[in-house]
Design a protein around this nucleic acid. Sequence first.
RNA 1: GCCGACAUAGCUCAGUUGGCUAGAGCAGCUGAUUUGUAAUCAGCAGGCCCGGGGUUCAAAUCCUCGUGUCGGCACCA
Length: 602
Amino acid sequence: MSAIAIKYNDEIVDLASAEERGIEGEEIELDNSPESLDVLRHSTAHLMAQAIKSLYPDAEFYVGPTVKEGFYYDFKTESEIGEGDLKKIEKQMLSFAKKKYKIEKYTISMDEAKEKFKDDHLKLSVMERIKDDTVSIYKQGEFEDLCRGPHLPTIGLIRYFKLTKIAGAYLGGDSKNEMLTRIYGIAFADKESLKNHMTMLAEAAKRDHRKIGNEMKLFTFREEVGAGFPIWLPAGGRLRARLESLLFKAHRKRGYEPVRGPEMLRADLWKTSGHYQNYGENMYFTHIDDIEFGVKPMNCVGHIKVYEDELHSYRDLPIKYFEYGVVHRHEMTGALHGLFRVREFTQDDAHIFCTVDQIEEQIIEVVDFVDKIMTTFDFKYNMTISTKPEKAVGDAEVWEKSEAALVSAMEKHNLPYTIDEGGGAFYGPKIDIKILDAIGREWQCGTIQLDNNLPERFELEYNGEDNEKIQPVMIHRAILGSFERFIGILTEHYAGEFPMFIAPTQVAIVPVAETHKEYAKLLSDKLIDINADSEIYAKNDSLNKRIRTAEKTRVPMIVVIGDEEIENKTISIRDRRTREQYIISEEEFLTLIQTKVNEVNF
RNA sequence: GCCGACAUAGCUCAGUUGGCUAGAGCAGCUGAUUUGUAAUCAGCAGGCCCGGGGUUCAAAUCCUCGUGUCGGCACCA
């Protein structure tokens, strides 16, 4: 196989450019290495543009880069293009590829380029952003495109690709601009890899929490209830209750006090907090008599009112309040997505009021808490520290100390983290926790934010050693983020195969015949005593059918009860995943379940 | 919010170029069967075809305005 590009000082240079510049380097062949795929996909994007141009001659093109999941090209045409047209474009691409046009490169001056693309206002706007005097053009057959490269030597090398999605995208990613059509695609060096990729996508679709949530009857949405308002069904309710109760204990152990603020608070309070001015667009407001109220989008104000309920001494700090806080936010319709983005959700929210000197130890504790939870669920995660932005309020020294405390907490725990310079909120630096699920997708969940702004606005204080009034630091933190999103992620992470300690139902009991029903009920009661939920499958169906039904609910353990079991006080267990069966004594069984249900402590 | 697609029974889906009483499987109900590890048999019931307006002799089907869902964009736990 011959080279498609070379690597020159870590830069990938295509053959045409290498010749132009007279450089040599390590040869890159057409395979599935990241470098090779990048070139291949970039050229596939151009091939797609070529096909689009031939099918829709009025099409104008913006940019067509490669991205993590393949490539896309943004363009505009008067014709309406829908999902059904992707096949047509693919076909056209293949027919061009068969012609094996060479991809030729030449360089022209910016002025020449502007003349060449004078009918394409999108290309012109691309050129607006290029500062160089010359630009390169890549040409394949009749089709020419302004591009920096690198590209394959010929489009004949493109064979294994697929157009995956069609969607709208704002020009330049700015919602103030016009909307273009974007087509996404993927390409590989060989057929097998493309096939594997498509299989992988299908696997990911099978894990979709919306699909599994429906199948397992965890939650539902209804048009008449309203977009973005989830309804928790019994099975989801049980799962969620287990998670809540585990987490409740974990908070108590760490000295958090459960509190609860009201759902709506007077609008004036939101003016004091600044939410009215800065977040009002996302809030829901109503009136009671003549007074305006705002439904809480966050729980901090409620917790501040708890703090204000009594005077505090420096000896009391840190003070930690937590609440499974229901919040409402006006998310835009297009943003709603299953349990991942909803308009009403419950945060595992807590606020820590502490002294500046206590920040570091508090952060360490929270980070440790996060670690416990994430490891329990087999999540890999990484953290990002966001530092002081340009527009910031508060004392410079406190900012410095706060940031240092965050970094130091990471370092001391030897945790990997990245820094987002200037990415913090205007009121304080923060740590975002991003988790990686079983199939490598990244999710933003928890967050730890330092806040000097709200204590200032509400004039919070505690008495110091010399009885002086000192303003405490407030730490906002959520670990799961929200029960909704976290359970959605868990569902996809486990593909619905929840571990015993969180599963909606721990055990399915299948009595062989009607005479065994009574015994099944006794066993079920014993399970409740050890905090395990079970369901008895005693319907008038064949044994096989009932086992099948139980299997389909994804319950971790199925036990079959018949004469033999009752006589010998044994349990016949069927493991869902391995489909293996084994028999143990009832006592062993109950111990086993109890261990599995209680093995987790955050 | 924007671009595009979609909406038929509790669920998953058929429904021809507009044309008789809108179908199937699963789930549900009734009955028979009482079962030893992934679907026993028979019968019954279930629909304002997302909602409002319109075109037409005739609309699940065409147009239009809503609502909801999906894929992205933009925005975010």
